[in-house]
Simulated scan of single mutants.
Amino acid sequence: MEKISLITTGGTIASKETTNGMLASGALSGIELASLCKLPNHIEMKVVDLFRISSMSMGFEKMERLKRAIQKELEDPDVTGIVVTHGTDTLEETAYFLDVTIKDQRPIVLTGSQRSPKDVGTDVYSNLRNSILCAASELLYDVGVVVVFNERIYSAKYVKKVHASNLQGFESFGYGYLGIIDNDIVSIYQKPLHRECFDIHHRIPRVDIIKCHTGADGLFIEASVKKGAKGIVLEGVGRGQVTPEMIPAIQEAIDNGVTIVMTTSAEEGKVYPAYDYEGSAFDLKQRGVILGADYDSKKARIKLAVVLASEHTVDEKFFKY
Rank of each mutant, 00 (worst) to 15 (best):
S187M: 15
S187R: 14
S187T: 15
Y189H: 10
Y189F: 11
Q190Y: 10
R195K: 15
R195V: 04
E196A: 10
C197F: 07
F198I: 05
D199G: 13
H202L: 10
I204S: 11
P205K: 02
P205V: 04
P205C: 09
V207H: 01
D208Y: 04
I209K: 08
I210Y: 02
K211D: 04
C212M: 11
T214R: 14
A216T: 11
D217G: 07
D217T: 06
D217S: 13
F220T: 01
F220D: 02
I221C: 13
A223P: 04
S224C: 08
V225Y: 00
V225K: 03
G228W: 01
K230C: 12
K230R: 14
G231E: 11
G236Y: 05
V237P: 08
G238H: 03
G238P: 10
R239E: 10
R239K: 05
Q241W: 00
Q241K: 13
V242M: 05
V242A: 00
V242F: 04
E245F: 01
E245P: 00
E245T: 04
A249R: 02
A249F: 13
I250D: 01
E252R: 14
E252D: 15
A253C: 12
I254F: 05
M262V: 03
T264M: 00
T264P: 01
S265R: 15
A266D: 12
E268Y: 12
G269Y: 02
G269L: 02
A274D: 03
Y277D: 05
Y277V: 06
A281C: 13
A281R: 04
L284N: 04
K285M: 12
V289H: 02
V289N: 01
V289P: 07
G292P: 12
Y295P: 09
Y295V: 12
Y295T: 13
S297T: 10
K299Y: 02
A300Q: 12
K303G: 09
V306H: 09
V306N: 08
L308T: 03
A309T: 14
S310L: 08
E311R: 09
E311L: 11
H312R: 13
T313V: 15
E316M: 03
E316S: 06
K317I: 05
